[in-house]
Amino acid sequence: MRTAGIDIGSITAKAAILDTGKILGTRVSFTGYNVEIAAKKVFEDLLEELGLKAQSIERIVSTGYGRNGVAFAHKAMTEIICHGTGAHYLNPRVRTVIDVGGQDSKALLVDENGAVKDFVMNDKCAAGTGRFLEVMARAMEVNLDDFGALSLNAGSPSKISSICTVFAESEVISLISKGEVRENIIAGIHDSAASRVYAMAQRIGATPPIMMTGGVAKNIGMVRALEKKFNQTIEVSDLAQVNGAIGAAVLAGRL
């Protein structure tokens, strides 16, 4: 059975198509302002890329913050459930999933079947999410793709004490004007974001093996900073960003 998962995040829209549990393809594009258009586009582009027709997809599950705006999906499920299922699909041994996206960060515990046992989500503040890193990369005039890697060259990471994104940006600007080494500041930024995520994950008692998913998992600086906090290796799949869409496609097969 062919199934699809559509994950509409705050910044990017993701699609995944599976055939009897095997990934045929995945795709990422920007969400923009219209969820419905974003969902259709990412889905149709992926179909075209794979040379498939929409009718050949039997079941579709939508997820992400825009999940209820995807009219062609058979069911909408939360991204927490889908990331748990996706991580379990990629590695069934995983027991904790840390999903950091554009404006949300979540930690969830999954059982041996990939079902969510407990979860926690940032509520009041977006420090420790992709948007925080984006704002900081802009303040540092560094391309977001290079941002994480640069942090690995730090001799002595700076200390960023503000939790608030706006105050943290001011702190970064004063560090720049003081002439602090760029890599040190960038490492400090990653440590600060990782601290938020770590503190949140500890509330549910993160247990190994830990997998990181979501767009921010592509940032090696964030992964290393989190590994330092957890004092253990964090698994990151090449499909981390589309993990929610994969989970949705897996769940579509169970409808």
Partner: peptide, 10 residues
């Protein structure tokens, strides 16, 4: 709703 739906699903 994301948190409520996930919890109810659990």
């Amino acid at each position: 709703l994301t948190r409520f739906e996930t919890f109810v699903h659990m």
